[in-house]
């Protein structure tokens, strides 16, 4: 009998954990939303967060975008060559970057570059009891630390994704036109013909803003629930990267189904 209970409990544990996880996240999100009006006035805190998560990610985002664009150019060229429609390369590269690759890869890179840092910062603040000290001084840690990160993420990720897309398109232009001698005019005109401002560009921006919010929310939550030990903080950082990558990919499917 006892063994039976034990087996059923083993099955139940992941689900209970999942529900607790989702509940904790929702609680945190509600708290952040209520403290937004206060935090939006503390511009210097938000600027600092944009500096740490956005400005310092410029190089990795631009370089990754450039290489992804070059790979798209090469692979697209090899595939399209079979159908004799290599002039479509511009629109293939632009559409796949704007709709999917740009927002998703930016969000995943942002999670590993900035999200892990946020988790480690909050986890260490908790381990060294700085969060409790703040509460004792009647400074709300949500308003002071979490909400600025959240706003910073929402602002920084769409800008980084736009940079990623631009670098990617320039990269595919470099491979297609400079190296493989495609016609420059048909590259741009095919692209302009198939890319729509509202449908593709704006939807991509909305997608990346949602991803920015989700990644920062996960990072901050993992920091708060981390065990206040060195090992706990390191586990939480890993969890941030893994679960943000999974959430971003799953959410991307849902958003794509809704938008396109």
């Amino acid at each position: 009998m006892n063994k039976m209970i034990y087996i059923i409990a083993t099955i139940g544990k992941p689900f209970a954990d999942l529900i607790l996880y989702a509940g904790g996240m929702l609680n945190l999100l509600i708290e952040i939303i209520f403290s937004l009006p206060y935090s939006i006035l503390r511009l210097n805190l938000i600027l600092k967060e944009i500096y740490f998560s956005g400005v310092k990610s410029i190089v990795i985002i631009a370089v990754s975008g450039w290489f992804v664009g070059m790979v798209l150019g090469l692979q697209g060229y090899n595939t399209l060559e079979r159908f004799g429609s290599v002039t479509m390369l511009g629109s293939v590269a632009a559409l796949s970057l704007l709709r999917e690759l740009g927002p998703v890869l930016t969000a995943i890179l942002f999670a590993s570059r900035a999200g892990s840092g946020m988790t480690a910062e909050i986890g260490l603040m908790k381990a060294t009891e700085q969060i409790e000290a703040m509460s004792v001084m009647a400074v709300s840690p949500i308003k002071r630390i979490v909400a600025p990160k959240f706003i910073g993420g929402i602002i920084a990720v769409p800008l980084l994704a736009a940079l990623f897309n631009t670098a990617g398109i320039i990269g595919s232009y470099f491979v297609g036109v400079t190296l493989l001698r495609l016609d420059q005019g048909s590259f741009w005109s095919q692209m302009q013909d198939s890319v729509d401002l509202h449908y593709d560009v704006i939807n991509g921006v909305i997608k990346s803003a949602v991803f920015g919010a989700v990644v920062t929310l996960i990072a901050v939550y993992q920091g708060f629930v981390a065990k206040p030990t060195a090992e706990g903080v390191s586990n939480a950082t890993t969890k941030t990267v893994v679960s943000s990558a999974l959430t971003v990919l799953a959410l991307d499917f849902i958003l794509t189904a809704l938008m396109f």
């Binding site: 944009i50 500096y51 400005v55 410029i58 800008l159 980084l160 631009t166 302009q192 890319v195 401002l197």
Partner: peptide, 27 residues
């Protein structure tokens, strides 16, 4: 310095968005 760097970052982002909507999307 922070203000300046963030300003540059936002400008780069806006320039990219402008590039995407003017050069890449249908005008």
């Amino acid at each position: 310095t922070i203000d300046f760097m963030v300003g540059i970052f936002v400008l780069i982002g806006i320039c990219s968005l402008a590039f995407l909507s003017i050069k890449v999307a249908t005008n």
